[in-house]
């Protein structure tokens, strides 16, 4: 029959329309549904409208989510090396970066002139960065990680869009807070919560003591 297809199509639309209101009833017409119900609405059982009211309720990011990289530094209340970089300026991230948006100045001891394992300067041009995550994937010291902070909109790019070391550095506990499972896995692979070099140092000392 001519027109039956359109009626069926309209039926589908009507179903969605009704579902939206049924969904509203289900959550008691609350604008923001309660936290424990949120995964249901944003998961596979969603019916009807499933809008996230962005500035008021924000989707938490998946643990593996990646945006702009950041540098891990030791917690400021760390007993031995507060605020020290995890980065040893080995340059692997700069080499593996596909659009080459990482600039590193290797640290030098001002007296001896020999390289020290901390970068003097570290820049990431976020106008070039493609959020691919290769730097974090290949960093042998777990020192560069992908951030979850996506609210970076600005009015001026000349001053705000080249991130220097200070802007990039974030405490280790920040990484633990945004990706607890991965932080734990990495710590396990590393053999402890400390920096790889510190762990090596400790192992060496322990060995020396034994001898």
């Amino acid at each position: 029959m001519y027109g039956s297809g359109i009626l069926r199509g309209l039926g589908v639309t009507l179903k969605h329309f009704v579902n939206t209101y049924l969904d509203d009833i289900r959550w008691g017409f609350r604008r923001h549904i309660p936290d424990e119900a949120f995964p249901i609405r944003q998961g596979l059982d969603t019916r009807g409208v499933f809008t996230v009211e962005y500035p008021d309720e924000k989707l938490a990011m998946w643990e593996r989510f990646r945006f702009i990289p950041f540098l891990v530094i030791e917690n400021h209340d760390h007993p031995e090396r507060p605020g020290h970089d995890w980065c040893t300026s080995c340059g692997i991230c700069a080499k593996v970066c596909p659009p080459q948006c990482i600039w590193i100045v290797r640290g030098n001891d001002p007296e001896t002139g020999r390289p020290v394992p901390e970068p003097q300067a570290f820049y990431i041009d976020i106008d070039i960065c493609m959020n691919c995550g290769l730097c974090a994937e290949f960093c042998p010291f777990d020192a560069i990680k992908m951030d979850h902070d996506y609210e970076l909109a600005s009015y001026d790019r000349t001053s705000a869009h080249i991130f220097d070391k200070q802007r990039l550095s974030k405490e280790f506990r920040y990484w633990q807070s945004i990706a607890p499972t991965r932080a734990e896995e990495e710590a396990e692979a590393r053999g402890g919560w400390e920096h790889k070099d510190v762990l090596k140092q400790k192992a060496k000392e322990a060995k020396a003591k034994e001898n």
Binding site: L59, A60, W62
Partner: peptide, 23 residues
């Protein structure tokens, strides 16, 4: 592939991103 499938699709609350999903 780069990583295995995670056991849990897990999101964490931070930076006011408080609406957590877990599957």
């Amino acid at each position: 592939v780069a990583m295995d499938l995670p056991a849990q699709m897990h999101s964490t609350a931070n930076l006011l991103n408080e609406r957590v999903r877990e599957f």
